[in-house]
């Protein structure tokens, strides 16, 4: 189990990344570069999610099978979203 200092540092990073997401909206870049900025937004959310899962939920310390379980569910979701969205292109 990680130390309180590490948990605090992760908390700080999560807050900064969230602020960056909102800041990107305020810069107005989204209007001009919608798709790349959307990609950055989702990437930032993914980094935050992996950080919470990895350290706060201790996935990094658990057997790999726990990660595979979660990844399998995420792949299922992505298959549904991608398949459904592509079907109407």
């Amino acid at each position: 189990m990680a130390s309180i200092k590490l948990y605090t540092a992760i908390f700080g990073v999560l807050m900064v990344l969230s602020t960056m997401q909102a800041a990107l909206e305020f810069t107005g870049l989204l209007e001009e570069f919608y798709v790349p900025i959307m990609g950055v937004m989702l990437l930032l959310s993914t980094i935050k999610a992996v950080s919470v899962a990895g350290w706060y939920m201790h996935v990094f310390d658990e057997p790999r099978a726990i990660s595979y379980l979660a990844i399998a569910a995420v792949i299922g979701v992505l298959a549904l979203i991608a398949g459904a969205a592509y079907s109407i292109t």
Binding site: A72, A73, V77, L80, I81, A84
Partner: peptide, 13 residues
Amino acid sequence: LGSDIILFGAFIG
């Protein structure tokens, strides 16, 4: 939670 990922996935999807 694996099941809940799919539940939220259905909503977000």
